[in-house]
Nucleic acid binder design. Structure first.
Lengths: 207, 207
DNA sequence: AAACTTAATGAACAGTGTTCAGTAATCCAA
DNA sequence: TTGGATTACTGAACACTGTTCATTAAGTTT
């Protein structure tokens, strides 16, 4: 049926339109001001229309999150050019932090905000969170190489991933949420301290 | 003037009443359901009344945050009983993580949520964030001892603090925000991995 | 052309933080 | 003790938010 096909295409086209407007809004005015009503106004549809394509706002944000992870994944592939696993690790660690600091609102969506994870909070097990898979597996792969080549202190792959991820996420999220104010430093000093902290950490996890 | 004094006392008493209701509400039903209206209903006053004692919700949350940090500070002092700085470091690191996992809503307020830090986002410099001072200085003190006694790898006190803090905050915040779902483990396994990660990290920062 | 199906919406609901005019209670001087 | 000033409090409103649903408009099928 050609008509059904066209309808299908139109449906996808509409979703794309919504996603595009949401992403632009996210990057331009931030998460807090990206409301269903604002998105609807941007694409010149009624707010109710959005609910014909997304069950609720969380579902929309979930899709948006997937796109954000796609962006991060691309960045990873771009930056991880080094030969040794340790070099690659350094490159993606720094890429991660840079991404977080440059696109704080996307970072929010991916790693901080409650929103698109609400269904997953009560581990019902039916469906897991798979948005971050790309990026996480990319990290795991490099770690595996590091362990295989006996360059990494860690024995357990997952513990290694958790350690590295927690460190960089800790740095980014404390910074974007202004908690580093407690250190009473100027902005430059803080950025410097973050860089040094990463370097020190990367030195420590080497054998 | 005795009357002015009494008025002052009554004003403070009212603030205390509001804070108590807010804290109870925070712990019982969480941040998301702690609205000005709900608090007002709990203390049997009009919502508008709260605005006679707090300029806005952020100011209220700021006070609440201060109380939360007081709680964490007490926990630190309680748990840091070890003799060596490294033992104390381990004790407060684990106390921090335990606090975060047991009281996720308070942890939110202290380290994750944007809310009470909004004024500080555009570093106007007029007033800094001093709620976390107690806890941060407690950490700095132990680190200083560790460096003095040449037990810690770090040279810079602040870098050390940032590294340790970022690690534990990373672990807690990724967990309370369900991002560890990406690892596809059961809850027990995750908690286990967190513990191991802390242990591994503490080993690494020792000389 | 009539009947059926689908897409879109206006209006409403329940919730949020916040403001402000107006009321009620208290205090102080005459 | 009474009248006027001060203070404490609140109801109602405003401008938002996400979400639902009956109704309208458009497109498709018979």
């Amino acid at each position: 049926m050609g008509i059904a096909d066209r309808k299908e295409r139109e449906k996808l086209e509409m979703k794309r339109l919504i996603m595009e407007a949401s992403m632009r809004m996210f990057l331009e005015v931030g998460y807090e001001k990206t409301s269903i009503r604002n998105i609807a106004e941007k694409i010149e549809y009624s707010p109710a229309t959005i609910y014909l394509y997304y069950k609720d706002k969380d579902e929309l944000l979930y899709d948006l999150q997937a796109q954000a992870f796609e962006q991060l994944f691309e960045t990873f592939k771009e930056k991880a050019t080094g030969r040794s696993p340790m070099k690659k690790l350094e490159q993606i660690a720094k890429a991660y932090v840079q991404f977080g600091l440059e696109k704080p609102d996307l970072y929010d969506l991916m790693f901080i905000i409650r929103s698109p994870m609400k269904k997953l909070e009560k581990e019902d097990g039916t469906d897991a969170w798979d948005n971050g898979d790309n990026c996480f597996n990319f990290l795991l792969d490099i770690i595996q190489q590091g362990i295989d080549q006996k360059l990494l202190r860690f024995k357990d792959k997952l513990v290694a991933a958790l350690s590295i991820w927690s460190m960089v996420h800790g740095l980014v999220s404390l910074h974007v949420r202004c908690r580093m104010k407690v250190m009473n430093m100027e902005e430059d000093g803080v950025i410097n301290a973050i860089d040094t902290t990463i370097d020190e950490y990367l030195k420590m996890i080497k054998i």
